[in-house]
Design a protein around this nucleic acid. Structure first.
Lengths: 217, 217
DNA sequence: GCAAAATTCAAACAAATGTTTTAATCATAT
DNA sequence: ATATGATTAAAACATTTGTTTGAATTTTGC
């Protein structure tokens, strides 16, 4: 839909998301948002009460749309599938949600706002953690138990969750550094499928090592 | 040294680092820094010209001290060592620099400021990338070539660099989320050595898989 | 078509904040 | 000891910015 035919409220929500992501909460001024969205400054307070109210709705909006488009449990996955294949789908969904333009668009889009929230959660984020992030993590935990086997230690599972999600999220988080330090590297946005393959292979190898160590011990 | 016997200039540098990390550049006010450091507001402009000048010096100060204390090339490492052992030392140095109290102290210390800069580099960071980060990455690249073998593809090496550094850095970046989503997990700060072991094992397994794929292809 | 409600708008307000000014104080070298 | 320069201090300045106000305009329900 053409932005100009969205309602005032929706236009504010849209531009505020970009702006909060690009500049952070404090550096983003209501006047900037209003100008970008082509609305009056007072419209923000009218529709969202205050700047914090707007921010909270932006966060909720981004997460609900992101997980709706790329659920943590891929609809193509099926209980009969091997745990390895489900891991691949899980990684694919996560990376597409974070990096792709249909998702959060990486560091140049809403992804930047998410990155800020992960580092420094605001009160608006508490709800999001319970609704989206915890179930997401729990699904990964379940997959890893299957791959590593019941005899594994919970600690190793949790550390592996962090290792896998860390790889995925680091691609958003460090895009600008990656591009500066390794200019020979094709921009992240054009490489999503290669990144997915790599993270999957790398993680599967990592899990093999965790499994092997368990059996030795 | 007792903070109260540091020079005005050094006290400002110290408290500004914490404050910029905790609240970000924009939200940190000169008045807050001055109050914490117990100096007059005008002292900041006197010693550092303006807020940006102060910020630039804070960044340079943090990186020079961090890499001096935990160099990317561990002094204990030795060319005769196996590449695997050097990888372990590399990961150890990186994680200690980022997480330990003698280093950047993770998300509760200067680590937070670094995390901000990685996501959104300021002009003060450009210098730091060339001086510290690029050589750091180049050392890891060299180690990985040895482990994976000369026949590997450059692309796989670069992706693996991101996978390994991503795991290390994610522990700073996501500490607060980790603690909220997995309360059963012991706080990151008390777990540094376990994290190092895990990242090393996981990464070695990942690299095995990269190596194996290369040989198949 | 009209009254009531919802929305938009321009202007003003009040607080926060980076910076400058000017005078006072301290340190240092002769 | 004193003069010179470096440092600190309090106050004022200029700008930015979130929010409110009250009138104008548009939309909605009947």
């Amino acid at each position: 839909m053409n932005p100009s035919q969205l309602s005032t409220r929706e236009r504010i929500l849209e531009y505020a998301g970009d702006m909060f992501g690009k500049k952070g909460f404090k550096s983003t001024t209501i006047r900037m948002i209003a100008q970008e969205a082509g609305v009056n400054v007072a419209a923000v307070n009218y529709h969202f009460r205050d700047k914090e109210g707007l921010y909270a709705e932006v966060i909720e909006d981004i997460f609900s749309k992101g997980f709706a488009r790329f659920p943590s449990l891929d609809p193509k996955s099926d209980p009969a599938m091997s745990a390895e294949d489900r891991l691949k789908l899980f990684i694919r969904g996560t990376i597409y949600r974070i990096l792709s333009p249909e998702g959060w668009g990486g560091l140049n889009g809403k992804g930047r706002l998410i990155a800020r929230e992960m580092m420094e959660p605001t009160s608006a984020f508490t709800q999001v953690i319970e609704t989206y992030i915890r179930p997401h993590k729990d699904r990964l935990v379940a997959i890893l138990w299957e791959i590593v086997g019941k005899g594994a230690r919970q600690e190793d599972i949790l550390l592996s969750v962090v290792s896998i999600l860390g790889q995925c999220i680091y691609y958003v988080y460090a895009t600008s550094i990656i591009e500066r330090v390794a200019p020979e590297y094709t921009p992240v946005e054009n490489n999503i499928d290669k990144i997915i393959d790599h993270v999957f292979r790398f993680s599967l190898g990592g899990l093999e090592n965790i499994k092997a160590d368990k059996e030795i011990a």
